[in-house]
Computed example of a mutant assay.
Amino acid sequence: MKKNARIFYMMVIPAFVMFFGFHTFPVLLGIFYSFTDWNGFAQNYDFVGFKNYLNVFKDESIYAAYGFTFQFAILTTVIVNVVSLTVAMGLNARIKFKNFFRGIYFLPNVLSLLIVGYIFNYIFSNMLPNFFENIQMKDWAFNILGTTEWAWLGIVIVTVWQATAFNIILYLAGLQTIPTDMYEASSIDGASKWKEFWHITFPMIAPFFTINMVLSMKNFLMAFDQIVALTSGGPAKSTMSISYLIYTDGFSGGSFAYQSANSVIYFVVIVIISIVQLKYLQRREMNL
């Protein structure tokens, strides 16, 4: 018994030390610095209390970043889940080469979002403008990432393309838990495919829908890689997300403590949104 306990501690303690050292300690350190005026470079700093937190609520650039981030997260969450569920239902049907198509649709999840972003950056800035130029559609021959009106669309396209893969796998797992005899009984009763979806499919996969919605919203609220690769927050900061603002101003803008306070506030916001979203969707599951 003591030998088993020793083995257990030998396995757990290194993982705990690494997790604390590379995750928990930096988080606690960031919270500590959020109460100071440290710029990220100087050796000395002074405590300023809640001054940084109060200034965050007065900063218009932060409000603009919050506005873009929330709009992006809500829109992308809806699109990703609609597309993922539609594709998963198609892959769950009795079609040829079903496993092959599952592998193809899961491929984007294997790729790094940063690399995918750089590839799409080249597509948007070079390939598509040249293509529309060659087919005499000059009104479309421009880089959407270079305009304040359409740059967000490029980010949404890349994010949806990459994020749907993981959601498809979860929805497929949920669809496979539905007994086939329920569909057989509904077809005997003459139910349409639309009624089957709302009265059988969707209620049965409601827990998977909840997981996908919560994870999608949380991940998209922390949008960073796609912003770095596609627009760097531009043009004119029209695609500046909160995560990218914290990174740029905190590490290269000399506002480390100030952006640490912003990150703490944003962490609380994401936790609250996730909890509210989870409670609402779980309550909805019970009413289905």
Rank of each mutant, 00 (worst) to 15 (best):
K2P: 00
K3P: 00
I7M: 13
F8K: 09
F8G: 13
Y9P: 01
I13L: 15
P14D: 11
F16H: 00
F16P: 00
H23K: 12
T24K: 00
L28R: 07
T36V: 03
N44E: 14
Y45M: 06
F47V: 10
V48Y: 05
V48S: 04
G49L: 08
K51M: 09
L54A: 13
F57K: 09
E60V: 15
E60A: 13
E60I: 14
A64W: 04
F68H: 06
I79T: 04
I79K: 04
N81Q: 12
S84M: 02
L85N: 02
L91G: 09
F97E: 09
F100V: 15
F101S: 09
I104P: 01
I104M: 12
I104S: 07
Y105V: 11
N109I: 00
L113M: 14
F120R: 04
F120K: 02
I123N: 03
I123T: 07
M127L: 15
L128M: 14
N130K: 14
E133S: 15
Q136W: 11
W140D: 00
A141T: 13
A141H: 10
F142C: 08
I144W: 03
G146H: 02
T147Y: 10
E149H: 12
G154Q: 02
A163K: 03
T164H: 13
F166I: 12
I168T: 06
L170T: 10
L172Y: 02
L172D: 01
L175R: 00
I178L: 04
P179A: 06
Y183D: 03
E184G: 05
E184S: 07
W198F: 15
F202R: 07
P203C: 04
F208S: 00
N212W: 01
S216A: 15
M217C: 13
K218S: 14
F220T: 06
A223D: 01
D225M: 09
Q226H: 09
A229C: 06
S232V: 08
P235L: 08
S238G: 02
M240N: 08
Y244K: 09
T248L: 04
D249H: 12
G250N: 03
Y258G: 01
A261W: 05
V264H: 03
I265G: 09
I265R: 10
I265K: 10
Y266E: 05
F267Y: 11
Q277M: 15
Q282L: 13
Q282T: 14
M286W: 08
L288A: 10
